[in-house]
């Protein structure tokens, strides 16, 4: 078996310890959506990557994908197939031609039910299993149940826990409740990393997105994540810009580097380049690596493979030429 690399266990940065609840920081948050939209619009026009650069960037994106299945009809076999795709995300001949034969996706992301299956399927690799948790996607189960769910997933071998926040805390501006909730989740996670899904599509305003991000980080989130994929609006560059700016603000205030995970609706290679430009421009190269950048996606990988094949062969590819995940 080939040796598989992942970087997820190899965090170069200090883990976020969280802070007190600083409501001053929240009061100081101003977000001018229209101006943000203007900036976002030029993210993809001010930068471009072509040919070898594009191939390298797309391969980097592959290493950041949290290859995800969150369906009611998930079965053990379905999850095993996905895990195998995580190990071998791109046709091996292409990877060899590109000089990077051993890359894998960043993680596998499943419901608690499938954690054990996934962990087993990924044995012998460093690919972590992430579990969506805390009554995903709505987060409206009893607190005791949600904490128990986190613990159960960690016990089953999940290295990363994607929690959902209670949206009503944000909509009612109950920052204390939100802080307490995320902090409790973080404690329940133990050594497992916590990704806080703020469900931007249900937060109504960009100021709420900014504030929910900031509270999550104060409460100890390792990553902040846009969406469950189940809301009507998924990740986009505008919410990403806001969240990333908050990460930068938090970094300036505390020195802690937080990771970012856009999720839902990212299905084209071209789209992911926009997110990568945003991370590089707003934060820097470190946030292009899987320990600080993840992409919640499933069909994206297929499109990336087709682009890579085009780069290698000069011919446009078809989906059926690449193994499905």
């Amino acid at each position: 078996m080939v040796e598989l690399h992942t970087i997820s266990d190899n965090h170069a940065h200090k883990r976020n310890e969280g802070t007190e609840l600083n409501l001053d920081w929240i009061d100081d948050i101003y977000v001018n959506l229209n101006a943000v939209e203007r900036r976002t619009k030029t993210i993809t026009t001010r930068r471009a990557v072509k040919k070898a650069n594009q191939a390298a960037w797309l391969l980097k994106a592959v290493t950041c994908i949290d290859l995800t299945t969150l369906s009611g009809d998930d079965t053990v076999e379905r999850v095993k197939r996905l895990c195998n795709k995580a190990k071998f995300p791109v046709s091996r001949h292409l990877l060899e031609e590109l000089g990077l034969p051993n890359i894998t996706t960043g993680a596998i992301c499943v419901y608690h039910e499938m954690v054990e299956t996934a962990v087993k399927a990924l044995e012998g690799t460093n690919i972590p299993v992430a579990a969506v948790s805390t009554g995903f996607p709505h987060g409206l189960s009893p607190m005791s149940t949600k904490l128990a769910e986190i613990k159960a997933s960690v016990k089953a071998g999940a290295k990363e826990i994607d929690i959902v926040i209670t949206r009503s805390h944000v909509l009612t501006q109950n920052w204390q409740a939100l802080y307490d909730e995320v902090k409790a989740y973080r404690e329940a996670c133990g050594d497992a990393h916590l990704k806080s899904i703020i469900a931007t599509g249900e937060l109504a305003t960009m100021r709420n997105v900014a504030k929910a991000s900031m509270i999550s980080m104060m409460a100890g989130a390792d990553f902040i994540k846009t969406s469950t994929g189940k809301e009507s609006t998924n990740a986009n560059l505008n919410v990403s810009m806001i969240m990333v700016r908050m990460m930068r603000e938090y970094l300036e205030q505390t020195g802690f580097k937080i990771g970012y995970k856009p999720a839902g609706g990212i299905s084209k290679a071209k789209d992911i380049l926009g997110y990568q430009f945003l991370m590089k421009e707003e934060l820097g190269n470190e946030w292009l690596q899987p320990d600080l950048f993840r992409i919640g996606a499933s069909s994206l990988l297929g499109d990336i493979e087709r682009q890579l094949e085009h780069f290698v062969t000069g011919r446009y590819s078809a989906a059926n030429r690449h193994p499905i995940g």
Binding site: A48, K50, A52, N53, A56, L59, K60, L98, G99, L100
Partner: peptide, 16 residues
């Protein structure tokens, strides 16, 4: 295209 080239950019993450 050289494999090394892609590999190198994969490390530097330059725009070119």
């Amino acid at each position: 295209m050289s494999a090394n080239q892609v590999k190198e950019i994969f490390e530097t993450m330059d725009y070119g």
